[in-house]
């Protein structure tokens, strides 16, 4: 296990398209870092560059203090879990897990011991002699994880490993992954487009957009103090509301406020008058979409579960000034 550094890493494709405009990330030993962003933002490319599957155009990648730019993927001492698992279809689970170790000429007894250990952690003991096609999606996902585990690598790289699972299983596997990380204390780099996964798994989140890093920080920090308007909109569901600053007497051109920071009625310092357009009931939460004069889009507010708001009803939304996020014209956080 080891830390990982990316220093000014760039990726320019032969056609001249720049996928990554210089990324600097320091990952501490044992840290769980999640790269998150919309599709096409370069997060997968960045991960594949760390793995050695994609050539590095500029900058340096260090794994455990060694520059690995010119090393083959097999020589970097990393393990990767792919979105579609990429299990070898003609090999049994045991063979899938041992293939990398056999290529490294690991002694047989050692391979057996590591597989037994991984099978115990991942509850794969009964499936070791099955072929991947005889397994369910969740089991295949575990085998892919097991294949990474037995390598005892310096870092685990995971490329949207849960996105092929159904919603229920995804939640379950997410919890298992978190538990696994706590148990192994290994370095994880995890790519996802799902901000819920990012928030719940990460020690630190790297938010990316259009080949640039928008913000790096702990989940809470990213949520509470988004550095740019993009981060503010991307993290959080439903997303943060944006209003012209002038509407509430703020100096900044754009002001954001999270749905849960707004209350209907109440005695907040900022007040917005509007008309309820629709109410979304999600069970635990209930969101009202309120048309506010002067705002481009309906303002979404979380309302009390017992409150009954009907469409067409006139309401006053209030918020504390401290809960507002001000952004300048370029979308950067203003103070």
């Amino acid at each position: 296990m080891a830390g990982l550094s990316l220093r000014g890493v760039k990726k320019v494709y032969p056609g001249g398209v720049t996928a990554i405009h210089g990324a600097d990330i320091e990952v501490a030993d044992g840290e769980f870092v999640v790269l998150v962003g919309p599709s096409g933002c370069g997060k997968s490319t960045l991960l594949r560059m760390v793995a050695g599957l994609e050539e590095i155009t500029g900058g340096e990648i260090l794994i455990g203090g060694d520059v690995v730019n010119r090393k083959e993927p097999g020589e970097r001492d990393i393990a990767m879990v792919f979105q579609n698992y990429a299990l070898y279809p003609h090999m049994t689970v045991r063979e899938n897990m041992s293939y990398g170790l056999r290529n490294m000429r690991t002694p047989k007894a050692e391979i057996e011991a590591r597989i037994a250990e991984a099978a115990k952690i991942l509850q794969l003991g009964d499936y070791l002699d099955r072929k991947p096609r005889q397994l369910s999606g969740g089991q295949r996902q575990r085998v892919a994880m097991g294949r990474a585990l037995v390598r005892e690598p310096k870092a685990f790289l995971l490329d949207e490993p849960l996105s092929n699972l159904d919603a229920k299983l995804r939640g379950h596997m997410r919890a298992e992954l978190k538990e696994l990380h706590q148990r192994l204390r290994a370095t994880f780099i995890y790519v996802t487009h799902d901000q819920v996964e990012a928030m719940s798994l990460a020690d630190r989140i790297v938010v990316m957009n259009a080949g640039r890093i928008e913000q790096i920080g702990a989940p809470r920090e990213i949520y509470d103090r988004p550095a740019t308007r993009f981060v503010a909109e991307f993290i959080g569901a439903p997303p943060m509301n944006f209003l012209p600053g002038a509407l509430i007497g703020a100096a900044a051109p754009h002001v954001g406020v999270r749905p849960e920071a707004l209350t209907v009625g109440g005695a907040g310092e900022v007040r917005l008058d509007g008309v309820v357009k629709l109410v979304e009931d999600l069970g635990a939460d209930r969101f009202a979409h309120v048309a506010v004069k002067g705002a481009e889009a309906p303002v979404i507010a979380r309302v009390a579960a017992h409150a009954r708001h009907a469409p067409g009803e006139a309401v006053a939304l209030t918020a504390e000034r401290a809960s507002l996020h001000a952004f300048d014209a370029e979308g950067r956080r203003a103070a």
Partner: peptide, 10 residues
């Protein structure tokens, strides 16, 4: 991905 997995598996 199968090719890539094999590359990572040396």
């Amino acid at each position: 991905e199968l090719v890539e997995a094999a590359r990572i598996d040396r």
